[in-house]
Amino acid sequence: MTSPLEQKKIRITGPSMVTANRTWDGVVIYRTPDHGWSVNLSDAAIVRTSDEARALLAESVADDVGAVGAYIAPVEIKDGGKIRPGNLREHIRSEGVTIDLPVPA
C-alpha cells in the first residue's frame, strides 16, 4: 500500500493495470486495451512485465486531458479471469469506502 505518489521505479512482480482519476469529475478509471478508459476494473488492460507496464503507463499519462494521476497498480486474476484489486488501496478505490457514508448514496 505504498502511496502511488511515491512510485518511482516501474517494476512489477505480477499482473498489473493502470488506473487514474477522470479529469472533469475525479472518478476512478482504468486504462483499457483499446487505449481508452473505463470506470470498471473488469475492463482494465492487464500487463505482466515491467516493459508492458511502462508502455501502458506512458500512453495513459499522454492522455493529460482525460485523466489525472495515472499509476500502475497490482491486480489479482481470479479463476475464470475475473480481475480483482491487488491491495487494500485499490480495493477501496474500486469498491468504495469501507464505512457507511453519513448519507447513503
Partner: peptide, 8 residues
C-alpha cells in the same frame, strides 16, 4: 482542491 482516492 486536492485529488484523493475516489474524487477531488
Amino acid at each position: 482542491v486536492y485529488l484523493q482516492l475516489h474524487a477531488y
